[in-house]
Amino acid sequence: MRAIIVEKPGGPEALEVAEVGEPSPGPGQVRIRTAAAGVNPVDAATRAGLLADAGLMPPFGSRGPIGIGWDVAGTVDAVGPDVTRFAPGDPVVGLRDRLDVPLGAYADAIVLDASAVGRAPRSASPAEAATLPLNGLTASQALDLLDLPSGGTLLVTGAAGAVGGFAVQLAVLRGLRVVAAASAADEALVRGLGAEWFVPRGVHLGDAVRALVPGGVDGALDAALLSVAALDAVRGGGAFVAVSGGPAAPVPLRGIAVHNVWIRADGTRLEQLSALVDAGRLTLRVAGTFPLEEAARAHERLEAGGLRGRLVLTLA
């Protein structure tokens, strides 16, 4: 079968189409015949060797080629022992959250733990469904960390992006009042997702937010990695979640509880998100599609920026 692998870190040209053996599910696992795979910034970071450099995965060459891709949508075609929740033919979405494995979602088939898989939204195409796992779970788990009560106020930076857009919608469903920060051109988009207030890029974020919410918001979900600029908008004793670690997570000034959201696969939560999609309460956005063989082109487009939604690789 076909798979996209990386043997040496580099630019998009480092992505290779290889013929590999088909994986078999072990105990508690399912094999998914891939219909679509999301293209995420973490895929580009993996390919470029940034995650290896940060000690988040072994160095390239230490265990052979590296598989690429976290998000998968497709159909179960085999189940391992002890799997009763899924059967061949089930349309599913899944998240590969392990980095040190030879195959990722950019492949004709992938084996995942059944606990990392949920039923796909019935109302979505495979390309649409493939945009849900990583970004939807990241937004949902970030809101869990913030733990704000209904009626609380939340700043979402990067609100027009893939994680930010899900965060706005899921926050509103939790009863939160959202201040969305994004490019001025995206105001209509994020208000349509449910944001009550809007702050355009290019202004002093803390001052602008406090003009809307005196004293500052109860929490911030920093999908744009603005760090201290977003922290300044939070009231003393509030909560802050950075979507990635390192410098994106600021010092917890003024008694603010600061967290990083480290994504984990959660099939049960994925099914809950799928149900929200089918109920028309969560929007899936595909920025463009490429065939598997053009993964390098997809990465070039990803790195060019300016996307609203996610690029997706489609597999026949």
Score class of each variant (00 low, 15 high):
Arg2Gln: 13
Gly10Gln: 01
Gly11Phe: 04
Ala14Gln: 01
Leu15Thr: 02
Val17Lys: 03
Ala18Gly: 04
Ala18Lys: 11
Gly26Met: 03
Gln29Pro: 01
Arg33His: 10
Ala35Ile: 02
Ala35Tyr: 01
Ala36Leu: 02
Ala37Trp: 01
Ala37Thr: 03
Asn40Lys: 03
Pro41Asp: 02
Asp43Asn: 10
Gly49Asp: 05
Gly49Leu: 04
Leu50Trp: 09
Leu50Ile: 09
Leu51Thr: 01
Asp53Lys: 15
Asp53Trp: 11
Asp53Val: 11
Ala54Phe: 07
Pro58Gly: 04
Pro59Phe: 06
Phe60Cys: 09
Ser62Ile: 08
Gly64Glu: 11
Trp70Ser: 15
Ala78Gly: 12
Val79Asp: 13
Pro81Met: 12
Pro81Asn: 12
Val83Thr: 09
Val83Trp: 11
Ala87Cys: 11
Ala87Trp: 12
Leu99Phe: 14
Pro102Val: 13
Pro102Thr: 12
Asp113His: 13
Gly118Phe: 07
Gly118Ser: 12
Glu128Trp: 09
Pro133Phe: 10
Pro133Met: 11
Leu134Glu: 12
Leu137Asn: 09
Thr138Arg: 05
Ala142Gly: 15
Leu145Gln: 07
Leu148Ile: 12
Leu148Cys: 09
Pro149Gly: 11
Thr157Glu: 00
Thr157Gln: 00
Ala160His: 02
Ala167Leu: 00
Ala167Pro: 00
Ala167Asn: 00
Leu170Met: 06
Ala171Gln: 00
Leu173Ile: 02
Arg174Pro: 06
Gly175Ser: 07
Gly175Arg: 05
Ala185Trp: 04
Glu196Trp: 07
Phe198Lys: 09
Arg201Thr: 14
Val203Ala: 12
His204Ser: 13
His204Arg: 14
Val209Phe: 03
Gly215Lys: 10
Gly216Gln: 07
Asp218His: 14
Ala220Ile: 01
Ala220Met: 07
Ser227Glu: 07
Ala229Val: 03
Ala230Trp: 05
Ala233Leu: 08
Gly236Asp: 15
Gly237His: 11
Phe240Thr: 03
Phe240Leu: 09
Val243Ile: 15
Ala248His: 08
Leu253Trp: 13
Arg254Asn: 14
Ile256Phe: 06
His259Cys: 04
Trp262Ile: 15
Arg264Ile: 07
Arg264Gly: 13
Gly267Phe: 04
Gly267Leu: 06
Arg269Val: 06
Gln272Ala: 15
Ala275Phe: 05
Ala279Ser: 13
Gly280Phe: 08
Val286Ser: 04
Val286Met: 06
Gly288Leu: 11
Phe290Met: 10
Glu293Trp: 10
Glu294Thr: 12
Ala295Pro: 02
Ala296Lys: 10
Glu300Gln: 15
Glu303Gln: 15
Arg308Val: 13
Arg310Lys: 15
Leu311Cys: 05
Leu311Glu: 05
Val312Gln: 05
Val312Trp: 04
